[in-house]
Design a protein around this nucleic acid. Sequence first.
RNA 1: GCGGAUGUGGUGAAAUUGGUAGACACGCCAGACUUAGGAUCUGGUGCCGAGAGGUGUGCGGGUUCGAGUCCCUCCAUCCGCACCA
Length: 990
Amino acid sequence: MEYNFSEIEKKWRQFWADHKTFKAEDNSSKPKYYVLDMFPYPSGAGLHVGHPLGYIASDIYARYKRLKGYNVLHPMGYDSFGLPAEQYAIQTGQHPAITTEQNISRYRDQLDKIGFSFDWDREVRTSDPRYYKWTQWIFKQIFNSWYNLKSNKAEDISTLIAAFESNGNTGIEAVTEFTETFTAGEWKNYSEKTQSDILMEYRLAYLADSWVNWCPALGTVLANDEVINGLSERGGHPVEQKLMRQWSMRIKAYAERLITGLDTIDWTDAIKDIQRNWIGKSRGASVFFPLWKACPDKNSSGGTEEEGSLADNKKGGQTDHTIEVFTTRPDTIFGVSFMVLAPEHPLVDEITTTEYKDVVDAYKTAASLKSERDRQADVKNITGQFTGAYVLHPFSGEKIPVWIGDYVLASYGTGAVMAVPCGDQRDWDFATHFNIPVKNIFENTDISEGAYTEKEGIIADSDFLSGLPVKKAMVIAIAKIEELGIGKGKTNYRLRDAIFSRQRYWGEPFPVYYKNDIPYLVDDAHLPVELPEVNKYLPTEDGEPPLARAGKSAWKYFEGDRMEYNTMPGWAGSSFYYLRYMDPHNDNEFVSKDKADYWNQVDLYIGGSEHATGHLLYSRFWCKFLYDRGYISFDEPFKKLINQGMILGRSSFVYRVDFATIDNDTPEKTTFNTGLIDFTIFVSKEKINASINNEIFSILKKRDFYFNGFTIEGFSPIHVDISLVDNDKLDVEAFKMWRSEFANAEFILEDDGSYTCGSEVEKMSKSKFNVQTPDELVEKFGADTLRMYEMFLGPLEQTKPWDTKGINGVHNFLRKLWRLFYENGNLIVTDAPASKEALKTLHKTIKKVEDDLERFSFNTNVSNLMICVNELTEQKCHSKEILKQVVILLAPYAPHTAEELWSEALGNRAGTVSTAQFPAFSPEMLVEANTVYPVSFNGKMRFNAELPTTFSAKEVEEAVLAMPETQKWLEGKTPKKMIVVPGRIVNIVV
RNA sequence: GCGGAUGUGGUGAAAUUGGUAGACACGCCAGACUUAGGAUCUGGUGCCGAGAGGUGUGCGGGUUCGAGUCCCUCCAUCCGCACCA
């Protein structure tokens, strides 16, 4: 029998499907193991070779665990709500559900061809109403919860309402921005609307006016993790800040637990650090600075009034007439020489004096017109404006000028900073730029060229802090601040609440309706609230989201004055899918408690690191919430996480000749390509630096184009589809046909008549025409070769460029393996007992394969199998006893080939190798009579000495010293010292 | 600026606790075989050197009998965050 991989693979895929070989049992006496991949968004481009990398690794591990006797849950599904299907719908009118369905079936075809051992009976799709019913249901639970700081967990909102009814909100410690107090009596007398508004301040899913990242091009808000350098992650459109009424998730309530939880899970430090950084915990103090003037508006006499003393000002009231700042350096409080507020700070208008009103307004307007990107790009430009107002230093009583400046962010801390130019570079720059006097409070430091930003040294000139080291001064400053009641120690987080609404069509509708402007939840009995049909997928003319186009009758369920028009963000459905896989067909619960307890945490999760601050953080948040509310019994979803590296593509370029007109009046050049010359000229890469002007001129002449008033401007690289390029040589005719505008292009070729393309390693993308799909490789070499090759490429976590150069090596390995079983099509497996050598090879391999799998070293395992087959080939081993075990070792990597050999060559007709038992390693098989010792002199290895394994260190020493080679290397000298590590090495110091 | 990762032949890479650097593969060179196949087999292949030998894991230093591995300084590349007070 020949190694006919395409028939073998087809046959076994069918077998697995027919026999449901990989079905996971919810009840089993076996230990459980849950291996999960990040489910894909089914894009129109299909899978490229980068997608399966992680899937292959997890599949190998899942198959290995089955062989090791585990009950393995290894599911797959689709994150099928998302922007591209909606954009396509806007352009073509085709319903996103149809596009999505088509893309999913393409993905499924591609996935199937690679031979994954998924339990497809558990497939989920986030856009399926039977799935998003539970997304909506979880939203309801979050809406109906508040965060109790006393129990440090989320609790049902009814416990809060009960407390309000008996005691008002005094004594409540909750995560909220709400600062007013009310009594039980007041609560009961509030209108339903007021009660609803107050509860909204406590709910973990809430509606609020918040500054959001608004992307006009996409017509929707974006979460912080969807904005990169001020541009949208998808499409790269500009993003601006806008105040909008939006649904948010109070993820800040979990900030601390999201940090501490990281210590309980096995993720790389890189990802943990990204999350810690994103949450951005900083310790410090909030301090209240009293305003110098009570209220300038009420006192038009401006600066003529007497300066109040600190004590007098304090009497004026801490709430109305103070500005709160957050600082991580309370030890530097005596170095404060001015204060800066964010331009959007709510007190700015109130404190600005009449004299400065116009300039402050002008500054505010200028700041508000800047996009997020401009503001970030403008970092080096120092801008700011004095407001005319002063605060008083809470300790010294000194007058401190109040400025506004856009280096202070409204959304971080209190939106106000106490500026300490001697200890903070930004404050120093600001002070220097505006000539504000700088006070130095650090002993023996020079701040003439910049701030002293080290968190060490001795504080000077600072009243009760003078002479103290920085770290001690921090503690004492906070204590004193708290003692005087002018502030308190505080922990601040950079993490912001997550905006949860999107102005899109293709997402989960909210289970929410409005009546008299009060939001109400749709009853569980009416879930899911299904997406209504709309005539267009665009926002309405007055800027409402697309769902506002749906009339009352378009909704299968409608209540109140209107339904919620927003839909949920992409991360909603992906935040609990790992739980749904445990119980995917349950109509009564999102997952039954029994099944959630049984399958428990995901033991191994594999996916890209690009989800570090999005999906992985949100999933942890929801998991902790569901844990708090008692639906599951673990509060971290993913026990071990591996981030597979990205596979980059190799793009190819052709080089277009660009021309320019020369305008005699102005020296500027204008590039044109097709305007005056209706054909394009491409230059082969190797010719770019040669003198080719004559060649170009003769082409122009040939085409009857007379060249005057133009010059050759340069050469632009243009991406060309990699399927038209072989080994950097362009198929010129295919290229002309590829894009019609190049049909009559001209080419300047190499001397040998070929066209050489340039190349670059970049991310794979449709627009770069460098996408390598797995399909053609499966076709050419088979899925087993592809699987092994992707693993052989290098460590899983590493980013690596795709290159098919080595794929033959892996393919040849499988053929070589085949030849251990068949010679010229005849079965040559024997029942003869295995040789000692063969047993040694086998057991060496068992140990290595197992060890390497346990540490997820998939690449080295391919070599282990290669070495095994090389050795067995050399030994001419065709023993069934050995080969049977080898096939099991191979099965996770090359499952189709393994199945075929198992059933046909080894005669296990009825069974499948997928449920075989992983071979046991016997150390005694590796015991040798002799050990080879490398002998080194001064650490340099000189020769090998074969000595009996049973020799003690002393015996080894004596035997080595007696060897002629030793005498040669000693050159007559006496060894100073001899190190013998039994079984390993001998080193002689001369 | 802060945080993280990486740096080894012509190429992808290996070396798990400090113990023969370059396993395994690609490529290349030489040869064999042949019903010319992306076949198979044999030998070689870090660099310098005819050889003995020397030298070699980004640079420089240190610890050690012994360092790719541990420590210090620096350099380069990639990733994440960034007027975060």
